[in-house]
Amino acid sequence: MPRPLVRLGASDPLAVLRGLEAALAGGPALLPVAEGVPALPTPAPADVEQRVALVVETSGSTGTGKRVALSSEALLAGAAAADAALGGPGGWVLALPTHYIAGLNVLTRSIAAGTTPSVVAPGHFEAGAFADAADQLATGPAAPRRYTSLVPVQLARVLDDPRATAALAGFDAVLVGGQSTPGPLRERAVAAGVHVVTTYGASETSGGCVYDGQPFGTVRTELVDGELLLHGPMLAEGYLGDADRTAATFVERDGLRWYRTGDAATLDDGRVRVLGRLDDVIISGGEKVPLGLVERHVRELPGQDAAVVTRRDSGEWGEVPVVVTATPLDLDTVRAHVGAALGRAARPAEVLVVDRVPMLASGKPDRRAIRALVADR
């Protein structure tokens, strides 16, 4: 029989926690929604299949809107495997929005551990508020460890604040994901005594399922024509109301169900290195240039932790990389740095300095807005 789907505003994280706890126990399925954000064109259904416990709604940073349907089994399997990889369950500081899978992951793991997360007030992230939440985090004998999950820009802000940095250094692990973590930022965190664990995953995998490049638990990886595929018990049921997209994204291979990530990657003795989106490769002067890889090298430069690389049409070259940053950056410097690592075609054609790089509520760059900025020039 169908299961009712309850929409709940994500501005109250503890209300979302209670709704998710009920959903995992067999109650109504939960759809947390961001308030003040335009709804997807198609209304969400009133009911879902019985197996669905959670629906994650996102317009994405580059793609079209989707509603990812997740079962209790997938969510709890992902949480259990993650806890095992980290060394055991613990108490969490919640610093991410609870309509995104990363924030919902924190809630799921708190529920599984029997702990209540300490919440950083939703809205503009501040290092002082994070330090306050860390001070208030209580752990018990059953879950004595301390964890949090951040995106790179949040980590950078914490490291700019001595009190917040000292608090962060007391955590057993700090998960950092949502986008690639610049090498200099990670080195800065490690130097401050912070145990950083970089994560990779998606709503379709119940959140992070690869830690520091290593798939955890029973997660399996495979490359098909350069695209990373993932298999494991944490996979989503599919997309609500979109059977064609579900069939194209979740595929059968050798009797197993796999998730096509849409990411280009390499596998070295099982270690995953994500290069960027397959659909974010440009042809510049007849050569393929992965913008994600260009961005990774740009972020190695001092002060460019949050720089974004996008594309621009070029009558001479077809398309060229463009750097968008809120921190001044010399074009010759970035061209030399990127060119030395990736070749002439990958060298950015322009540096666009803006007051603020457009961001989504999740802390990820709003790549559609960034591309529009560049196109309007």
Rank of each mutant, 00 (worst) to 15 (best):
A29N: 08
L30V: 00
P32Q: 03
P32M: 05
P32E: 03
P32G: 01
P32A: 00
V33N: 04
A34L: 14
E35P: 04
E35M: 09
G36K: 04
V37W: 03
P38G: 07
P38W: 06
P38T: 11
A39Y: 02
L40R: 07
L40P: 08
T42N: 05
P43N: 11
P43W: 10
P43S: 13
A44G: 06
A46E: 15
A46D: 15
D47C: 07
V48E: 08
V48T: 11
V48F: 06
V48W: 06
Q50N: 05
Q50V: 11
R51K: 09
A53F: 06
L54I: 00
L54F: 03
V55Q: 01
V55C: 05
V55A: 04
V55H: 02
V56F: 03
T58C: 03
T58K: 04
S59N: 08
S59D: 08
S59F: 07
G60C: 10
S61P: 07
S61W: 11
S61Y: 06
T62W: 08
G63T: 10
G63A: 14
T64A: 15
G65E: 13
G65S: 13
K66P: 11
R67G: 14
R67I: 03
V68W: 04
A69Y: 02
L70P: 09
L70S: 09
S71Q: 05
S71V: 02
S72W: 01
S72K: 09
A74N: 04
L75N: 04
L76R: 10
L76V: 13
G78S: 10
A79D: 04
A80G: 11
A81V: 05
A81W: 05
A82P: 10
D83C: 12
D83Y: 02
A84H: 09
A84S: 14
A85Y: 01
A85S: 05
G87I: 13
P89M: 01
W92N: 11
V93W: 00
L94C: 11
L94I: 03
L96H: 00
P97V: 04
H99M: 09
I101A: 06
I101V: 15
I101M: 14
A102F: 03
G103C: 07
L104Q: 00
R109G: 04
R109E: 08
R109D: 05
A113H: 08
G114T: 12
G114P: 06
G114D: 14
G114V: 10
T115K: 12
T115H: 06
T116N: 05
V119C: 13
V119I: 15
V120F: 01
V120P: 07
A121S: 14
P122Y: 10
F125M: 15
F125C: 15
E126P: 09
A127K: 14
A129L: 13
A129H: 15
A129D: 15
A131R: 11
A133D: 10
A133N: 04
A133M: 09
A134V: 00
D135F: 08
Q136N: 13
Q136K: 14
A138S: 14
A138R: 14
P141G: 13
P141N: 09
A143S: 12
